[in-house]
């Protein structure tokens, strides 16, 4: 598995396909911290959505960065389809770790918050980014040319990101007929609801709720990863 991940990340970093996502994310951070002080939990909410969008983009472009013929060669050398597909997810997850660290540490280093964060709060930021990033990755891997046509994959990705970034889920939750959409969308809105209740004075965020959020995220991502492996093992051989 490690050798596959090394190969995936080495190929991806040289493909430069991560650059558009990286540039947009950097621009977002620059704008976000232009005015200080920044609300601690409101900022975590906003940066989580940005991390989620970045993660879907990184995952989608990472899967697309390997040539279709090379995928077939690699798959045969791997001898295990599930291992091959899971390696793509793990590669994207690992690739994103530096972004989580930078996004957690940057506002602390530049002192944009109205007070100092405790170590636990910084770790909470890191954990939220990791969970949201995991959700983004396990969704982003679906936007590839074996599942969608090239142009459709891009359009589907943009449409999906819009649903998450513009809080359409709130609209869905108020329309009885569409209420079910609220529950099948990635559970980022649960996080948003928790964070919106907190003020800058709150020091220990989401103790019980955070555990529930963690469990929901891990279960949702695991389900998506299983569906991805099943769909891809069928699509790769068509």
């Amino acid at each position: 598995m490690l050798s596959l991940i090394r190969f995936n990340i080495a190929g991806y970093t040289r493909s430069a396909k991560y650059l558009p996502g990286l540039v947009l994310f950097t621009v977002f951070l620059g704008f976000n911290y232009q005015t200080a002080p920044v609300d601690i939990w409101g900022n975590l909410h906003l940066t989580s959505i940005a991390i989620f969008i970045l993660a879907t983009t990184i995952a989608a472009t990472l899967v697309a960065s390997e040539d279709a013929t090379q995928q077939q060669i690699t798959l045969l050398h791997t001898k295990n389809e599930t291992k091959y597909h899971i390696s793509k997810i793990l590669s994207a997850v690992i690739f994103l770790v530096p972004f989580y660290i930078v996004t957690s540490v940057l506002p602390v280093v530049f002192g944009v918050f109205p007070r100092h964060l405790t170590i636990i709060e910084i770790l909470t930021h890191l954990s939220v980014y990791f969970l949201v990033g995991l959700l983004g990755v396990t969704l982003g891997v679906f936007f590839n040319f074996r599942i969608f046509r090239k142009e459709t994959a891009f359009a589907a990705h943009i449409a999906f990101v819009a649903i998450i970034a513009i809080p359409l889920n709130v609209i869905f939750s108020h329309i009885t007929v569409l209420e079910f959409v609220y529950y099948i969308l990635p559970p980022i809105h649960f996080l948003a609801e928790d964070l919106n209740r907190l003020s800058n004075a709150s020091t220990l965020p989401m103790t019980g709720n955070f555990l529930v959020f963690t469990i929901i995220c891990l279960a949702y991502s695991t389900a998506l990863a299983i569906i991805y492996c099943l769909v891809m093992s069928n699509r790769m051989k068509q």
């Binding site: 050798s3 596959l4 090394r6 190969f7 080495a10 190929g11 040289r14 493909s15 040539d67 279709a68 013929t69 090379q70 060669i73 690699t74 050398h77 791997t78 001898k79």
Partner: peptide, 20 residues
């Protein structure tokens, strides 16, 4: 047709061997 890949020859073959 060999795929377009951004690796050096030795590096690519090493990756293929390690994956096996």
């Amino acid at each position: 047709r060999f795929p377009k890949i951004p690796f050096k020859a030795g590096e690519y073959l090493t990756h293929m061997g390690e994956i096996q």
